[in-house]
Design a protein around this nucleic acid. Structure first.
Length: 406
DNA sequence: TCTTATT
C-alpha cells in the first residue's frame, strides 16, 4: 500500500506501533495507529476493516480503555451467524445509543464463534436496547440474535445454583412419579387381580417424558394374560387410577429408600404436585393417555423384548426426527435411540425402536421389508443406504439388550 | 461459550 496515498486519503497518522511479544519478539499481530483526528481514524477503520492485508483479513476497531467501561452497559450476544460483521452490528446497535465496541469472539485459529459482546457508553442505552428487543427482536444476516445483559462470574454462579435447585426439584418429582406408578401397578396386579409379581420397575424416559415399566411375573400364565390385556386395550386396566390414589399408596407404603438407606423424597415434598395434578383433567395417573406400555418378561431365559427392534444401515446424516417420523407410520413408537455403529470404518447409524405393542412391531417389520409398497420404498431410499434397512439378528439383540435397559 | 493482543 502506498503510504503517502493512504495518509492523504485517511488523514495524518501520528504514530504506528506494532506489538511484539516481549520474550519471543514475535509479532502479536496487533498494531496501534494514532491519527491526528477522530474522523480520520473512523474513516480509516471503515475502509480497512475486514480487508485482506498481505494474506490476513485485518480487523480494525477503535481503541478505548476497557478498564474504565461500565459493565452494566455491556451486552452479551449469542446466536450470531458465522459471517457476523461487527461494523454492520455496530451500525444496527447505534440506533439505540453510543456504541463503544462490538466484539465477535474468535477461537485461537481465528475462526469466528457465534457469540460476542456489545459495549454501550451508558447503561441507559443498553437498557433501551433490551427493552426494545422484547417486542422487536433484531436479526443479523437472517439469524435472530439473542441478547442478554452481561453477567459476571458471581451472577452466573448464582444462576447455576438456581438451576441445580430446580433440577433437584424436578428429580424429586420424577422419582415420585416413577414410584407412584410402581405402587399403582403392583397394587392392582397383586391386590385386585391376585397376580404374583416378582419384580416391577418404572422409569420416566428423560427424553420423551413417558413412563414405561417392566413387570416380571412368577408364572408365564399371568404374564401372558396381562400381555393379552395390554395388546387388546392398548393399555392396562390398572392405569385407571388417579393422583389421589397414588398419594394414598405412597402414604401407606412410605417413600422409596435409596441403596444408601436415605429416602428419595418426603411425602411433604411431593404432596403439592399430586394435589395439583388431581385438579388437572389430564392427570397422568388417570390412564387416559396411552403413554405407557408393558414389558413382560416371560422368563429369565427369554428376555428379548418383543417390541424392540434394532434397525441398521441408516445413512449417517439422517436425523432422529426423520427416523421417528418414518417408523411412527407403522405404529406407536414409545422410544427411539440412535447410535453409531461401533466399527468406526462403517459410517452408518443404527437405531433401537420400541413400539407400544407387539402388533405394532410386527406391522412395522412387515411393512419395512415390503418390496412392493412404493411409498415405503421411496421413503427407505431417503433413510437407508441403498434403500435397504437391515434388522439386527436376535442373538445380537440379546447382547445389546443389557445396554438398552441400562 | 459472559472477554478483550490495550501503547
Amino acid at each position: 500500500m502506498d503510504e503517502d496515498q493512504t495518509q492523504q486519503e485517511e488523514g495524518e497518522i501520528q504514530s504506528v506501533k506494532i506489538k511484539k511479544d516481549k520474550l519471543t519478539k514475535q509479532s502479536k499481530g496487533q498494531a496501534f495507529i494514532t491519527f491526528r483526528n477522530r474522523d480520520s481514524a473512523e474513516q480509516a477503520r471503515k475502509k480497512f476493516n475486514n480487508q485482506v492485508f498481505i494474506e490476513n483479513k485485518i480487523r480494525v476497531k477503535p481503541y478505548f480503555n476497557f478498564h474504565k467501561v461500565d459493565k452494566k452497559a455491556n451486552i452479551f450476544i449469542r446466536n450470531l451467524p458465522e459471517d457476523a460483521d461487527y461494523l454492520e452490528l455496530e451500525q444496527e446497535f447505534s440506533r439505540f445509543g453510543k456504541v463503544l465496541s462490538v466484539d465477535v469472539h474468535r477461537d485461537q485459529s481465528g475462526k469466528q464463534l457465534n457469540y460476542g459482546y456489545l459495549q454501550y457508553e451508558t447503561k441507559e442505552d443498553a437498557e433501551k436496547l433490551m427493552k426494545r428487543i422484547l417486542n422487536h427482536p433484531i436479526t443479523h444476516k437472517g439469524k435472530l440474535m439473542k441478547l442478554e445483559k452481561f453477567k459476571d462470574l458471581s451472577e452466573r454462579k448464582a444462576n447455576q445454583h438456581l438451576f441445580t435447585q430446580e433440577h433437584l426439584h424436578l428429580n424429586i418429582v420424577v422419582r415420585s412419579f416413577e414410584y407412584g406408578w410402581l405402587l399403582v401397578i403392583k397394587d392392582y396386579l397383586t391386590r385386585v387381580q391376585g397376580d404374583q409379581v416378582m419384580d416391577c420397575f418404572v422409569r420416566i424416559d428423560s427424553v420423551t417424558k413417558q413412563p414405561w415399566a417392566i413387570v416380571t411375573f412368577e408364572t408365564y400364565k399371568e404374564a401372558k394374560a396381562n400381555l393379552d390385556k395390554c395388546e387388546a386395550l392398548r393399555k392396562h386396566p390398572c392405569f385407571n387410577s388417579n393422583s389421589q390414589k397414588v398419594i394414598e399408596l405412597i402414604k401407606k407404603y412410605g417413600p422409596p429408600v435409596n441403596s444408601d438407606g436415605s429416602i428419595s423424597f418426603t411425602i411433604e415434598q411431593i404432596t403439592p404436585f399430586f394435589e395439583e395434578m388431581n385438579k388437572d383433567p389430564h392427570d397422568i395417573f388417570k390412564g387416559e393417555n396411552d403413554n405407557f406400555f408393558f414389558n413382560l418378561a416371560y422368563n429369565n431365559l427369554l428376555k428379548i423384548d418383543e417390541r424392540l427392534m434394532v434397525i441398521q444401515n441408516i445413512k449417517k446424516d439422517v436425523t432422529k426426527d426423520q427416523i421417528l417420523e418414518f417408523l411412527s407410520q407403522f405404529g406407536r413408537v414409545i422410544s427411539l435411540k440412535i447410535g453409531k455403529t461401533k466399527n468406526s470404518r462403517i459410517q452408518f447409524q443404527q437405531c433401537f425402536v420400541h413400539y407400544q405393542t407387539m402388533q405394532d412391531l410386527k406391522r412395522a417389520r412387515s411393512e419395512l421389508f415390503d418390496d412392493k409398497n412404493e411409498k415405503t420404498i421411496k421413503q427407505r431410499k431417503e433413510i437407508f443406504k441403498d434403500g435397504h434397512p437391515v434388522e439386527s439378528t436376535k442373538k445380537k439383540l440379546q447382547s445389546w439388550q443389557s445396554i438398552v435397559q441400562g
